[in-house]
Design a protein around this nucleic acid. Structure first.
Lengths: 155, 155
DNA sequence: CACAACTTAATTGTGCACAACAGAGTTGTA
DNA sequence: TACAACTCTGTTGTGCACAATTAAGTTGTG
C-alpha cells in the first residue's frame, strides 16, 4: 500500500472520530442550557418539530428526526409525563398516534427562544462557516444513506 | 428580532441536527462492516487506539477517545470477554488499570485493515473535502470545549 | 366477503454516554 | 509520620439509539 493511501485511510478514521466527538461536544454544550427547560437534546429536537408543525404523528416525527419508534416511544412518553405533549390514537387511522402540544408545551417555546443564540456563540463560527459545515454534513449523510440503502437488497 | 438573525438561529439548529444525523449515518455504515469483526463502532475506536499504542491505561484511553470511565469500563469488559484485551492493575500504581491486546486482539487488526477503505468510498468525499470537514469539526469541538470549560467555575 | 399483505406503534434486549457517587490508592505537606 | 487532597477506576441510574419481534389496524384482491 502506498503512503498516500495510508494517509487517506488515516484521514478517514480521523473524520469519523471527529464527527463523533463534535456531536458529543454539542450535546455537552446543550445539556446545561436545556436542563433549565427540563429537556434533553433529542427531546428538544422533538419539541422544535412540534413547535413548527403543531401536531405530528409518531411516523412523521420519525421521518423528520430520522428516528424510529424504539427511540421515539419512550422519549414521547417522557414528554407526556412532563405535561408537554399529549399522545392519542388517530380516529381516522387507529394505527397512528398523534402527538400534540399541550398549553404547557406551547408555553415552553418562550423559554427556549434564546437557546440557539447561546449555542451559536459557543461554536465560534461565522455564518459562512456554518453554511459550509451544514452543506458538508448533509452531503456526507446523503452519500452514506445512498451507500447503505444500495447495499441492502430490496424486496 | 430581525429576519437575518432569525435565519442565523435556524441555521444553527440545522447544523446541530445535521451533525447528529451524520454521526448516526456513519454509525449505520460502520455497523455491518464491524459486525463481521464482532465490534461496535466505539469498540473499534478503542481497538484502533490499542493497535497504535499497544498498551494503554483506562485513563489514557479516555483522554484519546474523550470518554469517561462510566463508558469505558463496561466497553472494555466486553472486549475482555471477547478475548481481545486483558485488563490488569498496574503494579506501579494500583489505581491504574492497564489494557493490553491479546494475541487474538492483535490478529483482529488484519481483518480490520480494509474497513476504512470501504467507509471512505461510502462517504463520496474527496481527500480535499475530508480535510476541510475534519478541520471544521475540530475547530467547532475546540470552541465548544473552551465555551463549556469556561462556563464551569473552577475550584 | 375473506384473507393475505402491508402499515404503524410498542416492546424487548443490547450497547453507548454521562452525571453523581463510592472506594481504594497515592502524594504532598505540616 | 499523619492526614488531607487528589487521582483513578468502578457502580448506579437515566436516557438515547437501533435491531428484532409482536400486536393491532388497514387495504387490496380473489
Amino acid at each position: 500500500m502506498t503512503t498516500a493511501s495510508e494517509e487517506l485511510l488515516r484521514l478517514d478514521n480521523q473524520v469519523c472520530f471527529a464527527l463523533h466527538a463534535t456531536s458529543r461536544a454539542f450535546d455537552a454544550t446543550y445539556r446545561p442550557l436545556l436542563r433549565d427547560l427540563g429537556l434533553t437534546y433529542p427531546q428538544y429536537l422533538a419539541m422544535l418539530a412540534l413547535w413548527e408543525h403543531g401536531t405530528l404523528t409518531v411516523k412523521e416525527l420519525g421521518l423528520a428526526l430520522r428516528l424510529d419508534s424504539g427511540t421515539l416511544s419512550p422519549l414521547l412518553k417522557r414528554l407526556e409525563a412532563a405535561g408537554l405533549v399529549r399522545r392519542e390514537r388517530s380516529p381516522q387511522d387507529e394505527r397512528s398516534v398523534v402527538v400534540t402540544l399541550t398549553a404547557q408545551g406551547e408555553a415552553l417555546r418562550e423559554k427556549a427562544v434564546n437557546v440557539p443564540r447561546r449555542i451559536l456563540a459557543s461554536t465560534g463560527l461565522s455564518e459562512r462557516e456554518l453554511i459550509e459545515l451544514r452543506r458538508s454534513l448533509e452531503r456526507v449523510t446523503a452519500a452514506l444513506d445512498a451507500a447503505t440503502t444500495e447495499a441492502t437488497p430490496r424486496p
